[in-house]
């Protein structure tokens, strides 16, 4: 009995330590940093000091604790058109990229799910493989394709469709194409795992009952694949909203996206408090889709566990 109790004790101590290791790491290096960003977003810019922000809490000469909170970083975001346009166009470009990912990704995921099971693994691997090759180099490839004397313009001019090259690189179009290309696998994978489970006898039943293929698709396939569509769209939309690399490589100077504005504010202007406020507002905005996605995942997890 005594040894049993001892063993139980040793298990419990071990358990706490084991939980503590990743917990502590994540609290120090993930949770705390978010708190610090929030703190700095409430300070004022202090040029010439390092780090370039003021303290919120300070002991005054009279021995009293003074608290100075600066909300101007947030009100400034609303009053300055630069930020409003950046936020709005980020959402716009991200929505367009999500739409095009769905347009290309849905038929592809559908075709893979319906293909010969022997080919399926290979197709899936082909979807995932670009994701393993360098993200930066895949974006870079589009510079060569969209340039003034790039691949598309040369083909079109060679065919005599156009006489002068169409400016495509450094436009919002290039940014949307780049994001669609980069995030397409994120759309296809959840869609595929949803469509793969689809019960084909449902469509046969619908056909037996006289439904045309189109009606059956709209009334049965589409509603049943909705969880996949939503999960895939969120997985594209969320990172696309905060995208920085693609607009800075493929976009022009007027192609504003909030990720790019944030980085510029931080490195070029060294305005850490405003950059922090930009990050906090972006985070607050994305919290809705992020929580939505996590709820979906948890639901899928529970279903899988059954």
């Amino acid at each position: 009995m005594k040894t049993f109790l001892n063993r139980l004790k040793s298990i419990r101590i071990g358990r706490g330590t084991v939980i503590g290791i990743p917990m502590l790491w994540m609290i120090i290096f993930l949770f705390l940093p978010f708190a610090i960003v929030f703190y700095i977003s409430l300070t004022s810019l202090s040029e010439g000091t390092s780090p370039p922000y003021t303290d919120i809490f300070a002991w005054g000469s009279d021995g009293l604790l003074t608290i100075k909170i600066n909300l101007a970083n947030y009100t400034g975001l609303v009053l300055d058109n630069l930020y409003l346009i950046s936020y709005a166009s980020s959402v716009g470009y991200a929505l367009m990229a999500t739409f095009f990912c769905l347009l290309i990704g849905y038929p592809l995921a559908y075709a893979i799910a319906r293909s010969n099971p022997a080919h399926r693994t290979i197709f899936l691997m082909l979807v995932i493989m670009p994701f393993w090759t360098s993200f930066l180099i895949r974006v870079y490839a589009w510079i060569g394709i969209l340039k003034e004397n790039g691949f598309i313009n040369q083909i079109l001019m060679g065919l005599g469709v156009i006489n002068d090259p169409i400016p495509m690189l450094y436009t919002p179009f290039a940014v949307v194409v780049g994001m669609t290309y980069t995030y397409l696998p994120f759309m296809i994978l959840p869609l595929y795992s949803n469509l793969e489970k689809f019960d084909l006898t449902l469509l046969e039943a619908a056909a037996d009952l006289g439904a045309k293929p189109k009606t059956a698709w709209f009334r049965i396939t589409l509603p049943l694949s909705m969880p996949g569509i939503i999960a895939g769209s969120l997985l594209v939309f969320i990172p696309a909203c905060g995208e920085y690399v693609i607009p800075s490589l493929l976009g022009g100077p007027e192609t504003l996206m909030i990720g790019r504005t944030l980085v510029d504010e931080f490195f070029a202007n060294r305005d850490w408090p405003v950059a922090s406020a930009v990050a906090i507002v972006l985070l607050a905005f994305l919290l809705i889709p992020i929580v939505w996605f996590q709820t979906l995942e948890r639901k899928a997890d529970k279903k899988g566990a059954k």
Binding site: P33, Y244, A279, L283
Partner: peptide, 13 residues
């Protein structure tokens, strides 16, 4: 799920 710019600024700060 977090955009990388937010993670990056949090780590650095």
């Amino acid at each position: 799920v977090m955009p990388e710019v937010i993670l990056g600024i949090s780590f650095l700060l």
